[in-house]
């Protein structure tokens, strides 16, 4: 009896989500998009493709970490052969770095626009184009109405969009499915070995629509996201202090 009640609640929750217009994306690969435990934060435990994600990256260091995580996501999104558009006014992304994240840099198309308002126009046009793997735009400011326009565009085309927000003071309410913040963390290496380790980030989901926000530590190792084991981190902390 206990079991059936739990099942019922699960089913009802899914129904509510569906009635709210949340279409569960079909996970065509077991294991989702490769983010590991982080995916449980999203409704139904599936990374929502065909939606718009918002990435907060006020400093260049955070922007670098964000583009690292995003490149990892792009590697999964672009597996089906789609191209990707990157729209910005001041672009610093260095295409060869994408190769480290298993993305072919020549499949990215960069659109450098002069004015801020053209970014949103270009993004809306691009999001309407079915079959693109992802559209990334660096925007400073976006109103709720503008974000709704983008949301309407992706609802029919199922393109995944990423908004890079480099001004944390201008964050307002948007229709984005999730708001991320990624900060770099010190990497670890095997004991006594010199050098810099694998890129490691603190990935915070500040807001998730219908989901559970949280914070995770991730590492990019050999073409995969690897959740960082907290115990190892704990063991290392005193050692780092000693340096």
């Amino acid at each position: 009896m206990q079991e059936t009640q739990k099942d019922m609640i699960n089913r009802l929750q899914k129904d509510i989500l569906r009635w709210q217009g949340f279409v569960p994306p079909v996970a065509d690969k077991p294991g989702g998009i490769g983010l590991g435990p982080l995916e449980s934060a999203f409704p139904n435990g599936v990374f929502p493709v065909g939606n718009i994600h918002e990435m907060v990256c006020p400093t260049p260091e955070q922007a670098a970490a964000t583009s690292g995580l995003m490149s990892g996501l792009l590697a999964f999104l672009m597996q089906k052969g789609g191209a990707c558009l990157w729209i910005s006014t001041t672009r610093k992304l260095f295409p060869p770095s994408l190769d480290d994240f298993e993305v072919q840099p020549d499949r990215l198309i960069f659109i450098d626009v002069q004015r801020e308002k053209d970014v949103l126009w270009a993004m809306e046009e691009a999001l309407k184009c079915e079959g693109l793997a992802a559209v990334i735009a660096e925007v400073r400011e976006i109103s709720f109405a503008q974000s709704r326009r983008l949301q309407l565009a992706v609802e029919s085309s199922k393109v995944t969009g990423f908004l890079l927000r480099n001004d944390p003071r201008k964050l307002g309410t948007t229709t984005c499915v999730a708001r991320w913040q990624i900060t770099p963390l010190p990497s670890t290496v095997e004991e006594e070995l010199p050098g810099v380790g694998f890129p490691r980030w603190q990935v915070e989901l500040l807001r998730v629509r219908n989901g559970n926000p949280g914070s995770w530590k991730l590492e990019w190792v050999d073409g995969h996201f690897v959740p960082v084991d907290e115990d190892i981190m704990m063991n290392e902390l005193p050692e780092r202090k000693a340096i």
Binding site: G81, A83, I111, W121, A122, E125, A126, C129, G131, A133
Partner: peptide, 29 residues
């Protein structure tokens, strides 16, 4: 499934963008 670089709809999208922002501002490396 995915519109790669050879896809017509992508080329048409880029034409539209190029008309607004200038063809020189659309780059691929």
């Amino acid at each position: 499934e995915g519109c790669g670089l050879a896809d017509t709809s992508l080329a048409e999208l880029l034409d539209r963008l190029a008309n607004k922002v200038g063809a020189g501002n659309i780059r691929r490396y």
